[in-house]
């Protein structure tokens, strides 16, 4: 890391102040509040607040709905990351073969990232809407009866597609950059060394993309854990029968709809801990793996 030298000791702090203020007001302060709230319990009318220690946390462990949400979140996050990354990798590989004409395609492929998650959710909600949507009609022709408001598996498929769709653009850009940083001569050398296209991908391209893939895996998982709230909210609202009720959505439902602030706060602290852990793992690993 490059170390800039400031003569004035105050100047760096002044320059950092706006960013620090934003971080404090919108992140640290609410996080601290959530932390504090997770140790409290309010009565139903919000009149009395009592300190209950770790009771909100221990209750979570016995809460069937919460444990269900943990499972749903695991399935959801892994599916979003795997789907978003594999589709992006396929597109990037296709574009990498024709770099000269790739600009137009790349622009098109990047557009979804500019679409707000809620809009993306709505878009997919329309496409898969059992009465007015296109996909249920097409699937119906193929003999598949689509109704994600009744079928939990179908609801999961819908939210995974809607959440992964947007992420494909982001992953795609990183994969394209990763692919282009692999010198063409490596693949040429491998071709001369008798490796066919598939073997070349498996033994040369993919291992050299590993740092990129690992970085994206963490970013996508964090995205699926945290940023997919609007997608769920616009499509399934956690239903049917909790089938798509992921942790971040449950935080909202329990806190704002159920008004169980203590439990909601405890849940968000748990989520926060998971993300912090993931980030730490990422930095540790990336530092070690980035140079092969």
């Amino acid at each position: 890391m490059k170390r800039a030298v400031f003569r004035n000791r105050l100047l760096p702090w002044v320059l950092l102040a706006p960013q620090l203020a934003v971080t404090f007001v919108f992140f640290l302060w609410p996080a601290a509040q959530a932390g504090w709230q997770s140790f409290l319990r309010e009565d139903a009318f919000g009149l009395k607040t009592t300190f209950v220690g770790l009771a909100n946390y221990s209750r979570l462990l016995d809460d069937g709905e919460y444990l269900n949400a943990v499972g749903v979140t695991a399935v959801f996050s892994v599916s979003v990351a795997v789907l978003g990354m594999s589709v992006a990798l396929l597109l990037a590989l296709a574009v990498d073969r024709m770099v000269t004409t790739a600009r137009g395609y790349t622009t098109l492929l990047v557009w979804p990232y500019a679409v707000a998650p809620a809009i993306a959710g709505l878009l997919w909600w329309f496409i898969f809407n059992p009465t007015i949507g296109l996909m249920p009609h097409v699937l119906g022709l193929m003999g598949i009866d689509w109704d994600h408001s009744l079928n939990g598996n179908q609801a999961m498929i819908l939210v995974v597609i809607a959440a992964a769709w947007k992420q494909i653009s982001y992953n795609f850009l990183f994969f394209v950059a990763g692919l282009q940083s692999i010198p063409a001569s490596l693949r040429e050398a491998a071709a001369i060394d008798g490796a066919g296209p598939f073997r070349r991908f498996l033994t040369i391209t993919f291992p050299l993309l590993a740092p990129t893939s690992f970085f994206l895996l963490v970013v996508n998982t964090v995205y699926a854990l945290f940023d997919t709230f609007p997608v769920i909210d616009a499509t399934t609202e956690g239903g049917p029968a909790q089938a798509t009720n992921i942790l971040v959505y449950k935080v909202y439902v329990d806190g704002f709809l159920g008004l169980n602030l203590g439990s909601s706060a405890a849940q968000s602290v748990v989520l926060m801990a998971v993300v912090v852990a993931l980030t730490v793992v990422q930095f540790r690993y990336v530092e070690r793996r980035v140079e092969y």
Binding site: P183, E188, A189, A190, A191, I192, G194
Partner: peptide
């Protein structure tokens, strides 16, 4: 295909596989 021509090439930037050891580089082909 290049592989079927029974030739070996030495590149300007060497094109060694960075994630393999020297031994693996030699054995790859």
């Amino acid at each position: 295909e290049p592989a079927e021509r029974d030739i070996a090439m030495v590149f300007q930037n060497y094109a060694l596989y960075p994630h393999m050891t020297v031994r693996q580089n030699l054995a790859y082909g």
